[in-house]
Design a protein around this nucleic acid. Structure first.
Lengths: 331, 331
DNA sequence: TTGTAGGCGTTATCAC
DNA sequence: GTGATAACGCCTACAA
């Protein structure tokens, strides 16, 4: 067993055909299933296939059929990531495989040009765009590529692609309701609000908040200060006998820790409501004592892929919006 | 501007040739640069190319040349990820693009079969394997695929592929030295040691520790308990007038927070040494006060890609091991 | 139910 | 320095 330098040439459908005693096209038909095949031949072909360890050549298949079996996934810059991204990406890759597709990474850094490239060269036959902004430069190239696509995150203008996202408006309402149930006088929203105008999810969330808080006796405070000092600021806002709920779409971990550090995680003045998730494993013991909403990232990832597969495979399938409802995590 | 349903067919090199008034093969030669072309024709061809917005068809190119321009990246399961993975992946994707390659995700879940698939179908012309175990089932299929590959993480037996990784042995020595410099009597290693036999990085790290601690007056304790209680256990180990250093390859954030929560981050009895990194952005204020080692993930990612490109493009290039030295982060 | 054959868009080997 | 031309491996009308 020496050093193997050259790989031996992989078998072609021609080889399979020869071994099975049929024509090359029959092999192809067995594979694509686009024509009825008698049980006898099918069996012989399949035998030959795994006797040779045959896999259809992707380049040839793509060239001929225009379908590469590859979905382009445009991921945002990872700077300051907290592990959330990886949950989406991993789940998307897994679900894609279940449907026979592979995932090709396109970094947001490449921008619109990156999209044009993978589209024109034909590497990808469909796209998933993550963390879409309200007005996103990537939408243009995607639209005139004509490729089916799904966005995670709802863009401002409804595009010709499908959308899968958390129902942030409902999330807003849920938080308000919970705060009231827990007899809070005030809801402090940390972190995200400062970027309100840039991010679609935040603005929808705030819509939900306003909607639900409008007729209630709940004061809503948008906190834009440093996350580490959120608990302190909350305390200062809270008069004796009052209670303040704390929630944020981002920065959950930081604030959670700040709460814990000051021993304020469970007291009467402040109630921390957590946007939970798989990325928070390292603080999970802390989470046990507070109410949690599940942002359902796994479900969103799966739905995104399934929706794309639908656009690809069901003909006449039009784009649609799917909003996934947040869920309270049972303690 | 109505609803655009059909995408118009992209231009081929044939179209470019026609527009430039040359033969199709000339266009190809301009693109690949595998034959000298006069400046005049080159200019005309390039004009035609961007007048038409031409991009070579990837399927055809792959079919003909056996080079897909795609690198398969095998990522580990993301369960309990802390954001580290995304740093690697993002950086690898970026660096790959700089060299003209794209990254295709292969989840570790697919295991050896996944490798066989991307190899046999010809989607990938090279592979990067992340978080390789000491004895990894994926190495087999990769080896007999004959494809060039790079592993992030040094496997037990030296394979025919290249290796890029942090120099964990040196890391071990650095930690011991620092602990001694800081006049610690004891080094408590949390988290990782329990899995010593499974992970190559951990065992190399411990080798370095033993190597450096052997002749010194430093007691080394392998802590396998819950991370949240590490500071407490450290305290219990520490007699009056003694000092204990704390370090771990994993679980940095948890222990860091536990230290902060008990106000022990900067005291005389315990010294926390952090394995720093981009994933810890959300605790960065806490890091300011402790010594930090940079695990150099960005550099490792870049080197992995460059190494792979070398294997692909420099002929006769053999595999080699590259260990990146950890660095103290200057405060 | 199965076989024959044309062509997808490149690359690279011949010729000139 | 440039132009024809033969594959690459597969899909899919068209025949039988």
């Amino acid at each position: 067993m020496g050093v193997v330098t050259g790989r031996k040439k992989p078998p072609t459908s021609q080889d399979v055909a020869r071994l099975a005693g049929v024509s090359q096209s029959t092999v192809s038909y067995v594979l694509t299933g686009s024509r009825p095949i008698s049980d006898g031949t099918r069996a012989r072909v399949e035998d030959a296939i795994d006797k040779l360890g045959y896999h259809p050549n992707s380049g040839a298949r793509t060239l001929r059929s225009k379908r590469s079996g590859v979905i382009g996934l445009m991921v945002p810059e990872a700077e300051a990531d907290d592990g959330v991204l990886m949950v989406f990406i991993g789940e998307i890759a897994r679900e894609a495989r279940r449907h026979g597709y592979d995932i090709l990474l396109v970094t947001a850094q490449e921008g619109a040009g990156g999209i044009r490239r993978v589209v024109r060269t034909g590497v990808c036959e469909a796209l998933i765009l993550m963390e879409l902004g309200r007005f996103d430069e990537r939408v243009g190239p995607v639209l005139d590529s004509g490729l089916p696509f799904v966005t995670l995150g709802k863009p401002e203008e409804f595009p010709q692609g499908s959308v899968v996202d958390l129902d942030f408006e409902m999330l807003g309402r849920m938080i308000v309701e919970r705060a009231i149930e827990e007899r809070c006088d005030r809801l402090l929203l940390f972190g995200a609000p400062s970027r309100k105008r840039e991010r679609n999810d935040v603005s929808r969330f705030l819509d939900g908040i306003e909607d639900a808080a409008g007729e209630e006796e709940l004061e809503v405070v948008l906190d834009t200060g440093p996350l580490a000092e959120v608990p302190d600021r909350a305390l200062r806002l809270t008069a004796p006998n009052e209670r303040t709920a704390l929630f944020g779409i981002n920065g959950v971990r930081q604030v959670l820790f700040a709460m814990a550090a000051t021993g304020a995680l469970v007291d009467d003045t402040r109630l921390f409501i957590a946007l939970s998730g798989e990325d928070l494993v390292d603080v999970s013991p802390l989470l046990a004592s507070v109410p949690q909403v599940d942002p359902r990232r796994v479900e969103i990832s799966e739905l995104a892929v399934r929706e794309l597969v639908r656009l690809l495979q069901v003909d006449g399938a039009g784009p649609r919006i799917t909003l996934v409802e947040p869920r309270w995590v049972e303690g």
